[in-house]
């Protein structure tokens, strides 16, 4: 069963007179519950592909189907909703909000989806859930810390907890270990593996590191703007 399909996706960037084609007709399928890794050289367009799939940007051509529904041309409202509930992302640079502590960072997607009173009403449950998630990623002891007081690995774990708080169907990970050392990297990958196996969470992992890709259920490689 495929959860996400990408058909003939094209995307290019225009800088002045030059047009740089980055994605030149991607066809790809993500199966429900699988751990898919996309491997490719730096600059091959992996991040661009993931951003399009994660609805952060629009493709030039082609379409993306999510659970059979075409989502790339949906209204902003629907896309905002999908980003919030169904399709989560984690990034190479973690992208936590520096003013908030770990728990608040994890709660951000919930704050976005719920109005003030609803959130207030459920605040206790929400906090419990956030702590549970942080416990799961191994950060139970650092709840009150700000992101800048954490190591890279800890920040990435926080970002993973944040990505999971709204129980998404699919997690898009863009080189989550790109800035981490080997052993930390292993920990993060194991965490993702565990999530995939225990929660049946669909994961799409982008990396340029073949050894990480090797741990995935399936690997596709992105070369010169097309999937090989």
């Amino acid at each position: 069963m495929s959860i996400m399909q990408v058909h003939d996706l094209k995307k290019s960037f225009t800088k002045g007179p030059n047009t740089i084609p980055v994605l030149k007709g991607i066809n790809m399928e993500v199966h429900e519950g699988e751990f898919l890794s996309i491997i490719g050289q730096s600059g091959s367009g992996k991040s661009t592909l993931l951003h399009v799939m994660g609805l952060l940007t629009h493709p030039d051509e082609g379409e993306i189907l999510y659970g059979g529904e075409r989502i790339d041309n949906q209204s902003e409202r629907r896309r905002d909703y999908l980003r919030n509930h169904d399709i989560s992302m984690i990034f190479q640079f973690y992208h936590l909000l520096p003013e908030l502590d770990i728990v608040e960072n994890v709660l951000t997607p919930l704050m976005i989806s719920e109005g003030y009173w609803k959130f207030r009403f459920n605040a206790k449950e929400h906090r419990e859930r956030a702590k549970e998630l942080l416990d799961r990623v191994g950060l139970a002891h650092r709840l009150k810390h700000r992101p800048n007081e954490l190591s890279g690995g800890e920040m990435q774990r926080t970002a993973i907890a944040r990505a999971l708080i709204n129980s998404p169907k699919i997690l898009l990970a863009d080189e989550p270990t790109g800035n981490l050392d080997r052993s930390t990297e292993g920990g993060i990958i194991d965490l993702l593996r565990g999530l995939n196996e225990k929660e049946k969470l669909t994961i799409v992992l982008v990396t340029h590191n073949p050894s990480i890709a090797a741990g995935a259920d399936r690997t596709v490689s992105l070369v010169d703007g097309v999937i090989e």
Partner: peptide, 9 residues
């Protein structure tokens, strides 16, 4: 950008 990625309108 982060907030938008997390679904903020």
């Amino acid at each position: 950008g982060i907030l938008k990625a997390l679904g903020a309108s």
